[in-house]
């Protein structure tokens, strides 16, 4: 209800309401942006760009859906746009892979905390990181991802498969590192 009230005020361009809405959602949304970028500065750039879009287009928000989902979708799209705009991400993002990789059925336990897990995801190559985020966390279909990234659907499948395998390896390595540290300490 509080969010609804803020949205109504934001529709009237009330700056105080915009600030409150931002304060309410910015930390969670920065968490989303952070997963798609390689550093916090880039994540903040994405967040800023996305919130500008949010306030300019808030009239497009359909009240029948959850606001946070709409917000998250804008964050994701802005992040993709940002990655494609900047050359340090661009070359890695648009890699067309011809070979198909079967999705592994490995289903390991995850004993990492949130921060470590997110760092593992962010350590993936940009293309894998993006596809994994979109598929595993945001819940996009392969076809949707292919359209969003303007890729072949097989490339998306292939990248996801490799991303998943790399992530599992990274998680295991991270767990070993943490364990060894704790034993050593």
């Amino acid at each position: 209800m509080y969010t609804d009230l803020l949205i109504k005020k934001c529709l009237k361009n009330e700056r105080a309401a915009q600030a409150k809405l931002y304060q309410l959602y910015a930390p969670a949304m920065l968490g989303v942006c952070y997963r798609y970028s390689k550093n916090k500065e880039d994540a903040e750039d994405i967040l800023q760009e996305a919130f500008i879009k949010v306030f300019r287009n808030i009239q497009q928000f359909q009240q029948n859906g959850p606001f946070e989902a709409w917000l998250r979708r804008i964050m994701v799209n802005t992040a993709i746009s940002y990655l494609r705009k900047h050359s340090r991400y661009r070359n890695e993002l648009q890699v067309e892979e011809i070979g198909l990789h079967p999705i592994s059925s490995e289903n390991p336990e995850i004993n990492l905390d949130i921060k470590d897990l997110i760092e593992c995801i962010r350590a993936l190559p940009t293309g894998y990181q993006t596809v994994f985020n979109l598929f595993a966390i945001e819940g996009f279909e392969h076809q949707e991802i292919a359209e969003l990234l303007q890729m072949n659907i097989n490339t998306v499948r292939s990248q996801y498969s490799r991303a998943r395998a790399l992530l599992i390896t990274a998680i295991k390595q991270q767990e070993i590192t943490i364990q060894s540290k704790s034993y050593g300490g």
Binding site: P27, L30, G31, Y34, R35, K40, K115, L117, I118, I168
Partner: peptide, 14 residues
């Protein structure tokens, strides 16, 4: 695996 990862990272905030 996807479910666990999604659940774990959903509450992440900065």
């Amino acid at each position: 695996f996807e479910h666990i990862v999604a659940e774990k990272v959903s509450g992440f905030q900065i």
